[in-house]
Design a protein around this nucleic acid. Sequence first.
DNA 1: ATAAATGCAAATATTTTGCAAGCGC
DNA 2: GCGCTTGCAAAATATTTGCATTTAT
Lengths: 154, 154
Amino acid sequence: MTEKNKAKVREILDTYLECNHHRKTPERYAVLDAVYSIDGHFTLEELDAELTKRNFRVSRATLYNTMHLFIELRLVMRHSLVDGTKYEACYYNDSHIHQVCSVCGQVTEINVPAVTAAVNDLKLQRFRKDTFALYIYGVCSTCQAKLTRKKNDK
Amino acid sequence: MTEKNKAKVREILDTYLECNHHRKTPERYAVLDAVYSIDGHFTLEELDAELTKRNFRVSRATLYNTMHLFIELRLVMRHSLVDGTKYEACYYNDSHIHQVCSVCGQVTEINVPAVTAAVNDLKLQRFRKDTFALYIYGVCSTCQAKLTRKKNDK
DNA sequence: ATAAATGCAAATATTTTGCAAGCGC
DNA sequence: GCGCTTGCAAAATATTTGCATTTAT
């Protein structure tokens, strides 16, 4: 993530905290920066490691609180995949389509403009649409091969 | 869920267990039946309650094991929403689009044929696509009204 | 008879909570 | 100074695991 983009999300947080009379604590900015420095999905544990690497220690409670805040602000997306809960910076990310193998748990982000457009064009009643996540479940070719082999063995 | 449809999913489980030389335990059929008797999303706790109501007791471990199996078989879908993990019978269910309010957590299932078609038409490389789940995040009108009111108060 | 599946209980992992202390406004 | 936010530690939940026992094949 470029510095310019990090500045932009920092500004979004800034504006929100000011408008809603919440505090601009160093923790919130440090966590945001860490989040936007990690590429792709990450666990809470990994986020904590990133912060430690930067010599910034936050408590578990604050980490959870802050992630909840960021999710409400659409700065972070939470995914619950086969191998546990993962987070992801989502402000500069319009690839919300995940291909998930339910055998091995492997997740691949894919880009499908037609689907993205269909979702974005969607008009919802009494609902302010902000973002979306699409999970396509199936079996990857590697696992498919293993399954076929296993069946033949028997 | 009609009895006819329950019979159909039971048959799917049956065929799978036979072909793969796994055991047809009473637990597996009892859990499947309970799953397909509950309407909409449910927690593990609620599933356990349904089984207890039917005088069928299964251990926590078996419940988790069985749900994992059903998920692989596409008989069950697992959702991780704001208010925790939810499961859902999914074999006779093609409404996989969820509208999720990130403030109150309310989930509404919606039907959008255009989007469903776009996803179903999708061709993926080296991946056997089975099913999908789409989550559209935003703010419901009730929460939106509350937020606006709060902002005006200040 | 054999191996897979279950139950149980303990271990682990994950998330929330209450309260005292710290600090942004 | 006020009261939101944090850290801490404990509590509450959720999920997995090892092992003895049961049971489907």
